[in-house]
């Protein structure tokens, strides 16, 4: 019966028409819709994150006074060592500034630090992203580098009103130019496959043949600074394997990344100062 057959096909026809309409819909409308849906779900993310913070707060409150006193004492020691480091850094910065003035070099202080809590981590086989609790309101631009105490976290991929999405260096979609510490030749670093229950890994390519790395003598991989996105010298990971590449001119290898990347709770976004000057900035806490 033709009418019955049509009835059976109608749901699929309806979906097909909707999909066809979607495909010819202008990109601007889609972008608007995407932003709208993100902002619609953003409060859920932020609320969950705040609840988690609250949970952590109460968990910390449950510690005994003795534990807190011990932790405070440890913290005081760490602070003391940091105080020394800060003083040294200040002196070095002053020296650098003096030399820059003397040699008429442009200033190396090209970034403002914006610390942000991690609202959500989203690690699949295809992407590795985190959502942070700061966004356009804090002057965070797309493409800004993000770092943590262990080195590079990744690059800001999307910026929304109160949140931003950072694509991690563990993600196969992130590639940047690194150098082996002490060397100046750029190497291609790209996030690799991230097997379950194992530390994240990346891959290096275009590595000069004379660089030898193995699990017993790993090489530290740092940002090159050539790409114009990341400042030089930030840790990416350690090259633990290097083998002759298929072109016979370079080596390819594996980079072991910091395991803490899988449990980040706070990161720092390096906001380029020239972008910062143009953006509406709210003072960071």
């Amino acid at each position: 019966m033709p009418s019955r057959r049509f009835d059976q096909a109608r749901p699929f026809l309806t979906l097909g028409i909707l999909v066809a309409g979607w495909l010819i819909m202008p990109g601007a409308v889609k972008s608007f819709l995407r932003a709208s849906f993100f902002e619609l779900t953003a409060p859920v993310t932020l609320a969950a994150s705040k609840v988690r913070d609250l949970q952590d707060f109460w968990a910390l409150r449950s510690h005994s006074k003795t534990e807190l006193i011990e932790a405070g004492r440890d913290q005081a020691r760490i602070n003391a060592s940091y105080e020394v480091a800060v003083q040294q850094t200040t002196e070095l910065k002053a020296e650098i500034a003096r030399l820059e003035t003397l040699l008429r070099l442009p200033s190396r202080d090209q970034y403002r630090l914006e610390h942000a809590r991690v609202a959500r981590r989203d690690f699949s086989a295809w992407w590795q992203r985190i959502v942070i609790r700061k966004g356009r309101d804090h002057g965070i631009p797309v493409g800004a580098p993000a770092v943590f105490s262990g080195g590079v976290v990744g690059r800001v991929a999307e910026v929304h009103a109160m949140t931003a999405v950072v694509e991690l260096i563990t993600s196969p979609g992130v590639r940047l130019a690194g150098v082996v510490e002490g060397d100046s030749r750029p190497i291609s670093f790209q996030g690799g496959s991230n097997p379950a229950f194992a530390p994240p890994t990346g891959i290096v390519e275009l590595m000069p043949l004379d660089i030898i790395a193995s699990p017993t003598s790993p090489k530290r991989l740092v940002t090159s600074g050539y790409g114009g996105v990341f400042p030089p010298g930030l840790t990416l990971g350690t090259i633990v394997r290097a083998e002759l590449g298929s072109d016979g001119l370079h080596k390819s290898g594996e980079v072991r990344l910091d395991e803490r990347l899988g449990s980040l709770t706070e990161i720092t976004v390096l906001v380029p100062l020239e972008v910062d000057a143009a953006a509406p900035v709210r003072s960071s806490p």
Binding site: T45, A48, R120, R121, A125, N194, A196, G262, S263
Partner: peptide
Amino acid sequence: WGIQTEVNHVLSSHQLFFF
């Protein structure tokens, strides 16, 4: 969706993904 994202947040340290 909110629960899925929270589960993924927790699972991320084990490099697992909940769909």
